Simulated assay, not measured.
Amino acid sequence: MTDSPSMQELMRRRRRARFVGRRDELADFRANFTTAPEDERRRFLFNIHGDAGVGKTLLAEQFQRLAREEMGALTARVDEKPEGLVATLESMVRQLAPKGAAKHFDKALASYQQQLRDAQAAAGPIEEGPSTGGKLVAGMGLAVAQSLPVVGPLASAVSTEQVSQAAHRVGTAINERAHAVDPVPPGPAEALTPPFVALLHRLAGEVPWLALFFDTYERTEPFLGKWLLELVEGRYGDLPSNLVLTVAGQRRLPPGDWSSCLEAMAYVPLLPFTEEEAERLLGRRDPQLGPFPPPRH
């Protein structure tokens, strides 16, 4: 076993070295860290948006590298891999705090998961079947259903509608047995966000900056959208002033929904590369790297 970097790390280094364009976006993001929180020019939320393939993920990665390596920020980045709000929060906590250093959050997570197991035991397994219709019962939203053990074809959670139907059936079963079981468990946002915010405050006192990145937001918005807006608006408690959020997705955050945050938000629209940038990306004019080597036959 050697200490040499892995193939994937070498590939990431080369990709960073070949990063072209977006100088203005990087400069604006860097300058934001030198602006006092009280200054009206200071932005707490960056929204990278643009068509597929224009480099949103790469720019988000560059933002994260800049925040971590140049500004000394403690960072966490999530994309569509974590399935649901619970997994997203857990992933960020594991990136921000070493194992065992987020005891309050870990305790809340264990309690929440036990409540879900108790609710599932009371309701029985969720099986495929016709929807009973109607609204989801209070507290049994999409993200809760995603956390429940599911059997049969629903196990893949292939659509929001199927998961919503499952949540309704579980909630109905629990309500029918309310005289024999505990109340419906709270949703993941109510159960886990307050200890998450408390962790952010503790860490904010230990580092110059905190930076959270939410990538491929067009895929995670169904379970993160409402939560993220409420987080920024302060529903789960005030956030530290040295926290910077970045959301990257194909669509920009709707100004109507985010009206309360517009004065603290920077939209970062990404357009396709210019011809010069595209040529540099292909290695045609890069003075340091030169063109790609010809293929060997």
Rank of each mutant, 00 (worst) to 15 (best):
T193F: 06
E206R: 15
E230I: 03
Q162K: 12
E190M: 15
I174T: 02
G205E: 11
W209M: 01
T246Y: 01
E206N: 06
E190S: 15
A266Q: 12
C261Q: 15
A248V: 02
G234C: 05
R202A: 13
P222K: 12
H201P: 01
S241A: 14
L203Y: 02
R202S: 10
M265I: 09
V184S: 07
V163C: 07
L271I: 00
G256R: 14
V170S: 04
A180C: 04
Q250N: 03
S259T: 12
W209T: 00
A191Y: 08
D215F: 08
W258K: 04
V163F: 08
L212F: 04
N175V: 03
P185Q: 15
P208M: 12
V232D: 08
A180N: 07
E190T: 15
L271H: 05
W209I: 00
E230K: 11
A166M: 14
L270R: 03
N242M: 06
E230G: 05
V247Y: 01
G249V: 00
P255Q: 14
W227I: 09
R177L: 09
H168P: 00
G225K: 03
V268Y: 04
M265E: 03
W227K: 10
V244T: 15
H201S: 00
G187K: 14
P254A: 01
E263T: 05
T220Y: 01
Q165Y: 01
P188T: 09
P186C: 04
R219H: 07
T172R: 14
D238P: 08
L245P: 10
A178Q: 15
L231R: 04
H179C: 06
S260C: 02
N242G: 10
Q162N: 11
P255K: 13
E233D: 15
V181Q: 09
Y217K: 02
E230S: 15
V207Q: 09
L253R: 01
F196Q: 09
A167F: 03
H179A: 15
P195M: 10
E263G: 05
F223R: 11
E230P: 00
V232E: 10
L262M: 15
H201A: 01
R169P: 04
Y267R: 00
A166W: 13
L228K: 06
H179F: 12
V163R: 08
G225R: 04
N175H: 03
T246F: 02
A173L: 14
A167N: 02
D182Y: 02
T193Y: 08
L229Y: 12
A189R: 04
P255T: 11
P222S: 11
L229I: 10
F196L: 09
Y267V: 08
L200I: 07
A173C: 10
F196V: 05
S259F: 12
S241P: 10
S259R: 15
P195H: 10
T216N: 13
S259H: 12
N175M: 09
L200P: 06
A167K: 07
A264M: 13
T216P: 00
E233M: 02
P208A: 11
E176S: 13
D215I: 10
G171M: 14
L228E: 11
P254C: 02
T246L: 13
R169M: 13
D182F: 04
L253H: 05
E190W: 14
V232G: 03
C261P: 05
S164W: 00
R169Y: 07
A198T: 09
L192H: 08
A166R: 13
W258M: 06
G205S: 08
G171R: 14
Q250G: 10
P183C: 11
P183Y: 07
A191W: 08
A189Y: 02
A266P: 00
H168L: 12
T220H: 00
